[in-house]
């Protein structure tokens, strides 16, 4: 599930990569409320057992399509998450961590490289303001859908 295409480091990445990069690389993007949330702890701290790394899973039953088309329902997903004090995954761009963790009954956005019956390439939690996040992604997708490069730059 790691996004290897974003394995870029350094402060300059904030000027090069963001949600628009992910939208551009994805064929299908869906958002929605998380149902059937579950969490499996993969690693705990020694002594007092604090979860360090876990796999959060869930599904979207009523997706809002941001880009492309949904081929199957419900849409299943999982994401490996880690506690905030652990170093972040070096293969993930920094901006992805701004959106926090998946929460039961929370919102999520799923990015697919292909059809929705395959696991999503990126699972993005809805963050503090999912409506604003969905609107941003929809806006980006609609601008990127403009065929003419000049018109796209003007939009």
């Amino acid at each position: 599930m790691a996004i290897t295409t974003y394995a870029r480091t350094g402060v300059d990445q904030i000027y090069q990569w963001g949600p628009e990069s992910l939208v551009k690389e994805s064929q299908v993007i869906v958002a929605g409320k998380i149902t059937h949330y579950s969490k499996v702890v993969n690693s705990t701290s020694q002594g007092e057992p604090i979860p360090l790394i876990w796999t959060a899973s869930g599904q979207i039953e009523q997706p809002v399509v941001i880009k492309g088309a949904v081929s199957t329902l419900p849409i299943l997903f999982s994401k490996v998450e880690r506690v905030v004090f652990l170093p972040s995954d070096p293969y993930l761009p920094n901006w992805l961590s701004d959106y926090g963790k998946l929460k039961p009954e929370g919102s999520v956005v799923l990015f697919f490289q292909g059809a929705t019956d395959k696991p999503p390439s990126t699972v993005l939690p809805g963050g503090d303001n999912p409506d604003s996040q969905f609107a941003l992604l929809k806006g980006i997708a609609s601008i990127q859908a403009i065929g003419d490069p000049q018109e796209q730059a003007d939009a």
């Binding site: 000027y15 090069q16 963001g18 628009e20 941003l136 806006g139 980006i140 601008i143 730059a153």
Partner: peptide
């Protein structure tokens, strides 16, 4: 966030 995305996109163009 929207302004940053627009700025990055314009830079990319």
């Amino acid at each position: 966030e929207a302004q940053k995305a627009a700025l990055r996109s314009l830079a990319g163009f």
